[in-house]
Design a protein around this nucleic acid. Sequence first.
DNA 1: TATGCTGTATTGGTTGATTAATACACTAGA
DNA 2: TCTAGTGTATTAATCAACCAATACAGCATA
Lengths: 130, 130
Amino acid sequence: MSLLHALSVSPGSGEPIYRQLMDQIRRLAAGGQLQPGSEMPSVRELAQALAVNPMTVSKVYSLLELEGVLLRRRGLGMQVADQGAATHGQDERLALLRGTLQRAALEAKQLELEPAAVLALLQQLLEEKP
Amino acid sequence: MSLLHALSVSPGSGEPIYRQLMDQIRRLAAGGQLQPGSEMPSVRELAQALAVNPMTVSKVYSLLELEGVLLRRRGLGMQVADQGAATHGQDERLALLRGTLQRAALEAKQLELEPAAVLALLQQLLEEKP
DNA sequence: TATGCTGTATTGGTTGATTAATACACTAGA
DNA sequence: TCTAGTGTATTAATCAACCAATACAGCATA
């Protein structure tokens, strides 16, 4: 899997770019798609791929190092930490998705949508290819 | 229904407050929970209830007036416009939820979660009382 | 008219996010 | 040693979001 393709940002979405990236990297680590010891793209590589400033990516890497998700190795590139990439159990991973699902549920209620229709659409989206 | 209780903001969520409010009001209008001709709370009322600045609420109201969702009436308070509150069909309302569900689906995939588990949790959240 | 509400205009300020540009320290390989 | 990469530090600037404070114009009521 090329991490450069797995990560994306929506600059106009209203959420800061650095947060989007942090969230995504956390999820990939929790889901086991980032293996302990594997190399992260360099700040310059990722910044170029995403068309953002290298210092923005550096900020992401710094904050994730503080969380224990990544290991910083100046001159060598960042690495996925053992702790950070420990694949979590399904319940823990579901808990990471809970916030987004709560938001979806709230929006569905504001829109007065039937649960069955909402669940059908989500199922369709879950089954689509990336 | 008290609109003051139906609206909320999460200031630390990373999404601008004014966008959160606009999104919510749009959804309530599309879902028929805001009736044409009904009164919106004053900018001061809503600002106080949400602990934000009145000019922030005024910005929301101005932008929604540009969209045709609200009608501005200086000195009289804002009103829900006819066009804005036209209850949309289910397909149109589902389309308004699609963005959030796509995000949820993407996050579930990043977390390597089984669709069945995701759908079960969303169903539970949809059935919970507000 | 006065009062109390309504939304708006305006000025000035703060904060967070993002960026450009430059330079430094570190690593690996030739 | 030099080169080419690595992440970091630093300065300065811009922009969006948000705010406080004040005042104005409009509306309704007494």
